[in-house]
Write a protein that binds this DNA or RNA. Structure first.
Lengths: 129, 129
DNA sequence: CTTGACCTTCCCCTGCACTGGAAGGTCCAG
DNA sequence: CTGGACCTTCCAGTGCAGGGGAAGGTCAAG
């Protein structure tokens, strides 16, 4: 299978697949005599795994780590569990930060709606901020 | 006031202030005869405004728009209100996406804890993903 | 007179995950 | 044999908000 077909089957682009190879997410592809990359059908599953990892919010570098462990013949379970736990903690923190930001902005927005603040003071940039 | 002092007073770095000038957030500074930038004390307030805008999650480009309007002699209130409203909507969406991602990951993590999945299947990369 | 702190411009680098485009090679149908 | 679809490598850029560091000018203290 050539790179274009693989890309289509895996729902991505040829450009991205070359990038993945460069980043070590895909092993260097076999080549036809004329130099075209030639992929085994199973490669689709590997790309799907990359996509699932991305859907879980992992970076390509983290996904690469998992694949490296697996390619080394080991089970990456513990590592993956740690990564997922770390992501969970990060996400909770991000949500908390965004919630705080939302409250801040909502407060600014509210203050601005007060009737006694109808005029903009000329010596400040903006009464909203 | 020279750039180093201004940076310290405003809680930032000289490098960043030159960057802000380049980006149009600060007007081109006055220069001493020897070419040093020379700032009026009020400049601190402008930089503080930039920081408040950032704290509200606005990009430098958006903050620049506000400053441009104000520098043009108009009140940027409506524009700022629209920006804040847009930010609020964005934040809500980001929170919702993160919450969904959190649930996804927590689900994966949970599945992995099931006792009947103790062994990693050798034909998949990882049972967690 | 020299040292050291400060300033100037200039260009490149960071992280993340790609994307665009140029110049050229290959393959198959008509 | 020609056209077009596909492939190759390599270089460069995207967005965001700066940071690093070189090469050189300026200023006040000792």
């Amino acid at each position: 299978m050539r790179i274009g077909e693989l890309a289509e089957r895996a729902g991505t682009t040829a450009k991205t697949l070359r990038f993945y190879e460069e980043q070590g997410l895909l092993p260097p592809a076999e080549r036809t005599p004329s130099g075209y990359r030639d992929y085994a059908p199973e490669t689709v599953a590997r790309i799907d795994f990359v996509h699932r990892g991305q859907a879980a919010g992992l970076t390509l570098a983290q996904i690469r780590q998992i694949l490296d462990i697996r390619d080394g013949g080991h089970a990456p379970c513990e590592h993956v569990r740690d990564l997922l736990d770390a992501r969970l903690a990060e996400i909770e923190q991000q949500i908390a930060q965004l919630a705080a930001l939302r409250d801040t902005i909502a407060g600014l927005r509210n203050d601005a709606a007060k009737p006694d603040l109808d005029s903009c003071s000329p010596d400040q940039v903006c009464r909203y901020l």
